[in-house]
């Protein structure tokens, strides 16, 4: 599993660069590095469905973010003004968050040995009950189709919201 460790470290480095670089375009490209490393990690973790979707979505996210950064003429970072106590407060918050989350991590099952109470049934009966060879599809569209319906609703609402926010027709001219 050393490949997944290497990809996780690459993700950490990429996100650090994305946070700290001065130019917005470099930040967007570092973000794409994080997404593509995640895609390869999905392949190593035996999730090819997620890998296919992730790589296409990553490219689209890159295009959308470049569109957003292209709006500004100079693509450099806005100067951070010093605010009293702001960094200290954020540091304390992140440390507290990390403390409780690491406590919670110790209660999780060990890596590589998941608790598969429901999934055992899906794996055992998936093929004969749905007839689909791809068990992810059988979970997505048969056993848990309500989730997919909700997902379709969320997708519809988000796209509707984006179109309405950027609409030209019916807006008053300033």
């Amino acid at each position: 599993m050393w490949q997944v460790y290497a990809l996780a470290i690459l993700m950490i480095v990429g996100s650090l660069v994305a946070v700290h670089t001065r130019y917005l375009l470099s930040a967007v490209i570092s973000l794409a590095v994080v997404g593509l490393a995640l895609c390869v990690a999905f392949l190593y973790l035996q999730a090819p469905d997620c890998a296919i979707t992730q790589i296409v979505v990553e490219v689209l996210a890159l295009i959308i973010l470049i569109r957003a950064t292209g709006v500004e003429r100079d693509m450099s970072e806005i100067k951070n003004r010093k605010e009293i106590f702001a960094y200290e407060a954020i540091g304390i918050f992140i440390i507290a968050f990390a403390f409780f989350a690491f406590r919670a991590l110790s209660y999780l099952p060990e890596f590589g040995h998941p608790v598969m109470k429901v999934s055992q049934e899906y794996i055992r009966k998936g093929l004969e009950q749905t007839g689909a060879a791809n068990l992810v599809t059988s979970v997505l569209l048969d056993f848990r189709a309500y989730d997919t319906l909700g997902e379709a609703t969320v997708l519809f609402t988000a796209i509707l919201g984006a179109i309405v926010v950027l609409r030209e027709v019916g807006r008053k001219k300033k």
Partner: peptide, 10 residues
């Protein structure tokens, strides 16, 4: 993943 791209566009 698919929801994340739509919300990102929003």
């Amino acid at each position: 993943i698919v929801i994340s791209i739509a919300t990102l566009a929003f």
